[in-house]
């Protein structure tokens, strides 16, 4: 049974990009373009990992993280921040990892595998 990754990014091109990378590496992927949809999808799909953009038009990534961590069912899901903001490692300090855009695919996959303990 493949592990499931939820991709949250407001830029559909980047969301598709991440989706394709993860699919090509044998994961099951679901995605959302904003924080609220992301939370709904997380509740419905119970992913094993979330990748989260920080700056999005309606609500920013940290808000999603707070919602997630207040939900007993979801609070143990690891979150990897993928953002272009400089200083992004301070935005969500408990994130499993922080990656800066544009990113290196091999490095991304290595981190994902580490976080999923594969």
């Amino acid at each position: 049974m493949p592990k499931k990754i939820l991709v949250i990014d407001d830029d559909p091109n980047i969301a598709d990009y991440l989706t394709t990378i993860f699919e090509n590496n044998g994961y099951e992927v679901c995605s959302a373009n904003d924080v609220n949809t992301g939370y709904e999808v997380a509740k419905a799909e119970k992913p094993d990992l979330v990748t989260l953009d920080l700056e999005m038009p309606t609500e920013w990534g940290p808000r999603f993280y707070r919602k997630l961590s207040q939900d007993d069912e979801l609070k143990n899901i690891p979150v990897i921040v993928i953002s272009a903001l400089s200083g992004n490692q301070y935005a969500i300090q408990k994130a499993a990892a922080t990656i800066t855009k544009p990113f290196d695919r091999d490095e991304l996959m290595k981190i994902v595998k580490d976080v999923l303990m594969e």
Partner: peptide
């Protein structure tokens, strides 16, 4: 730089 980085990521992606 923020916007540029996002676009470069999208470029990588496509």
């Amino acid at each position: 730089s923020h916007g540029v980085k996002g676009m470069l990521t999208a470029l990588d992606g496509s």
